[in-house]
Simulated assay, not measured.
Amino acid sequence: MRQTALDQVYELAKRDQRVVFVGSDLGVGTLKKFKAEMPDRFFMEGVAEQNIIGMAAGLAMEGFIPYVNTIATFLTRRCYEQVAVDLCLHKLPVRLLASGGGVVYAPLGPTHLAIEDMAILRALPNMTVIAPVDAEEMTRLIPATLDYPGPVYVRFGKGGDPVVSKAAHGFAIGTAITLKPAGRVGMISTGVMSERCLRAAGLLAESGIEAGVLHCHTVKPLDVAAIADLAAQVDLLVTVEEHVLTAGLGSAVLEALADRGGRLSRILRLALPDSFTRTYGSQDSMLELYGLHPEGIAASVLGRLNQT
């Protein structure tokens, strides 16, 4: 998914002189064609993430559209003040391409797990937060960011994620996509969890429960109308995210429905626990540990339905 995003930035740069790339201590082969063909718009900085945000802000103030790439935790925890004051305050068109959202970097432990990144950034005025489901959706997402107003945060999966999006779905920032029509249950998810929800829906169907999947690739601004429509159709609304329970997608959905006077008793939120992990492994093993694999999602849904 990351490589697809960077390839798309390269394609944008070839046709738009405003596009520049700023990386932080990335591999020497990163975007080598970009560097060779457009060296005056390619910048690779050292381990100084706060600096690259300020640098990107300066470039944006001069009319450029910077695409900044490094690890998600470094773009959020480490650069929070710079993102808030340099980018959001001035509503600058800087695109933050975040590698390793969620528990992708499980082998490296809690310092590299971006489990609260959406909460951190959706709290900031003028920030847009997006998590595509697969590389194919990324090919539609990156071009959509070119002239989008204000800063944009794009959260990547690990790469090689199963492709479930389709060109026929289209893509517009802020517009959710129905991957599977709802039945008794409606699941709302973002990022790579949407693919896992589709598999969970298949497992639920084996138990006689029809479940749909609404893919909210854009967590901010949220597609409130689509969520409200789904909530009105189902017996149980389920939010699923690779993020802590606090202030992520599930919280955003609750806030949106509460503001519209919706019924909140029929909602189940599935997310990572409010704790730093003490285990190491893979993304899949970590999701399984916390019940966020397809079997765990299906079991949680069945458990809640059996309580009603």
Score class of each variant (00 low, 15 high):
Arg199Asp: 15
Ala247Asn: 04
Ala231Trp: 02
Leu287Gln: 01
Leu204Tyr: 01
Cys216Phe: 02
Phe276Asn: 13
Ser194Met: 05
Val240Gly: 00
Leu257Glu: 06
Asp223Ser: 05
Leu249Asn: 02
Val240Ile: 09
Val240Ala: 05
Ala228Gly: 08
Tyr280Gln: 11
Ser189Gly: 08
Thr246Cys: 15
Asp235Val: 06
Val238Pro: 01
Asp235Glu: 14
Ser285Asn: 11
Asp235Gly: 10
Glu210Leu: 06
Thr239Val: 03
Gly212Asn: 00
Leu272Gly: 07
Ile267Lys: 00
Ala225Ile: 06
Arg266Phe: 08
Ala205Glu: 15
Ser282Glu: 08
Ser275Phe: 05
Leu272Asn: 11
Ser207Val: 14
Val244His: 04
Thr279Val: 12
Gly261Asn: 10
His215Gly: 01
Cys197Asn: 04
Phe276Tyr: 15
Val244Ile: 13
Arg199Cys: 08
Pro273Val: 14
Met193Ala: 07
Leu264Pro: 12
Ile188Asn: 02
Gly212Gln: 00
Ser194Thr: 11
Leu249Ala: 03
Ser265Glu: 13
Ala232Thr: 10
Gly250Leu: 10
Gly202Lys: 08
Thr279His: 13
Ala228Lys: 07
Glu242Val: 00
Leu272Ser: 14
Ala201Gln: 07
Pro221Leu: 12
Ile227Gln: 01
Leu249Glu: 00
Leu230Cys: 08
Leu254Thr: 12
Val219Tyr: 01
Ala201Gly: 15
Thr218Asp: 03
Ala225Thr: 09
Asp229Gln: 02
His215Asp: 04
Arg278His: 13
Leu198Cys: 09
Glu206Gln: 14
Glu210Met: 06
Thr277Ala: 13
Ser251Trp: 01
Arg199Asn: 11
Leu203Thr: 08
Ala201Lys: 00
Ala231Ser: 13
Ala247Arg: 03
Glu210Gln: 12
Asp259Tyr: 12
Leu230Val: 10
Ala226Gly: 11
Arg199Met: 14
Leu245Val: 13
Gly248Leu: 08
Thr218Phe: 02
Ala247Pro: 03
Leu264Cys: 13
Ser251His: 07
Leu237Val: 06
Pro273Phe: 14
Asp274Asn: 09
Leu198Thr: 03
Leu272Trp: 10
Leu204Asp: 00
Ser282Arg: 07
Thr190His: 02
Lys220Arg: 15
Glu195Tyr: 07
Gly212Ser: 04
Val240Asn: 02
Ala256Thr: 03
Thr277Ser: 13
Thr277Cys: 08
Arg278Trp: 13
Arg269His: 12
Arg199Trp: 07
Val219His: 01
Gly281Phe: 14
Met193Asn: 00
Leu203Met: 12
Gln233Trp: 06
Lys220Asn: 05
Ala225Arg: 04
Cys197Met: 14
Cys197Val: 05
Ile267Phe: 10
Val244Met: 15
Arg260Tyr: 05
Leu287Ala: 05
Ser207Gly: 09
Ala226Lys: 09
Leu236Pro: 09
